[in-house]
């Protein structure tokens, strides 16, 4: 129905956003790709073609294997805690409880705490082995304190990040839960379906898409966890809590190895694209409805 003139106007209105995003995406990515094939360190002004050397060195570096494993543990651990915990919390808050609004606000609050604050508060006031709350709680039950960030660095970071993302999972699953058809539930209950079978045959299928969305979106953000590592363990001890983004950061801004860091960046793109592929399909399907 749109006239020719309207189409032209519409294109003109879209142009700035589209062109800017295109430049924003293509130019830096092309630059990273270019650097990844160069011998280029900030300490040595001579740049030469490196072929696939950067990729070879980045991948065969023992730190790379450790970083990949840590990335998988971090993403997997946080997902496990937030999805299971979020499902439980959403079901709980959806019950007719007193002060539901306030409970909801308390539960989602951690999401709004900036990552550096969250990480420092946990590192110091909760996890400090001498003065921290956890050390005090352990002492109450007669256990020795744990030096969380030195003894179990990755698990500690998983805990901190999970605390930040649990509200997200809860909020989204709760929103999805509240669109569940109450009459259907009642009908099932009258037909004698118990709590468990109602959960398995009605609630879970209804939530399946929301759960998928939570998993995919969290994965995209969790693949990029950085600030929490920087201010707590700085990737250590050794490489015990170094993930892929942190390794790239170390190569680029601490070792000044532009070529190798760029190769790492391209590897990160490949990983993220695999996840993005599935997410886009789900959102795309939704757009048609």
């Amino acid at each position: 129905m749109a006239t020719m003139q309207m189409r032209t106007t519409a294109r003109a209105m879209m142009a700035p956003a589209v062109i800017l995003l295109l430049v924003w995406m293509a130019v830096p990515l092309a630059a990273t790709l270019y650097y990844s094939f160069q011998n280029y360190t900030l300490l040595n002004p001579v740049v030469s073609f490196a072929g696939l050397d950067n990729y070879y060195y980045f991948i065969t570096d023992p730190n790379f294997g450790a970083a990949v494993l840590n990335t998988i543990y971090l993403v997997g651990g946080v997902l496990l805690i937030t999805v299971v915990g979020g499902l439980f919390l959403a079901l709980l808050i959806d019950q007719p409880i007193f002060g539901q609004g306030i409970v909801r606000i308390l539960v989602i609050s951690p999401f709004f705490v900036m990552p550096t604050v969250a990480a420092l508060v946990w590192k110091n006031m909760l996890m400090n082995p001498i003065y921290g709350i956890f050390a005090w709680l352990l002492s109450l039950v007669g256990l020795p304190p744990i030096d969380f960030l030195a003894q179990i660095p990755l698990l500690s970071i998983i805990l901190i990040v999970a605390w930040q993302w649990l509200p997200f999972a809860t909020l989204i699953l709760l929103t999805a839960l509240q669109s569940l058809d109450g009459e259907q539930m009642e009908a099932a209950e009258m037909d004698g379906a118990g709590v468990v079978s109602r959960f398995i045959y009605l609630v879970l299928p209804h939530l399946s898409r929301a759960i998928t969305v939570v998993i995919l979106i969290e994965t995209i953000f969790l693949l990029g966890v950085f600030a929490e590592i920087l201010v707590t363990t700085n990737g250590g001890p050794g490489t015990a809590s170094t993930n892929l983004p942190f390794l790239v950061y170390t190569q680029a801004l601490l070792n000044f190895d532009v070529g190798s860091a760029s190769a790492g960046g391209i590897i990160a793109v490949v990983v993220a694209n695999i996840v993005a592929f599935f997410l886009m399909r789900i959102i795309g399907k939704n757009l048609e409805a």
Partner: peptide, 23 residues
Amino acid sequence: ILMWMLSTKMMPAVAVLVPFYLA
């Protein structure tokens, strides 16, 4: 176009850290 715009959000920040830092 909408889907493509969204896909730009999926690009990991570390991948473009180096060119942005240098630029």
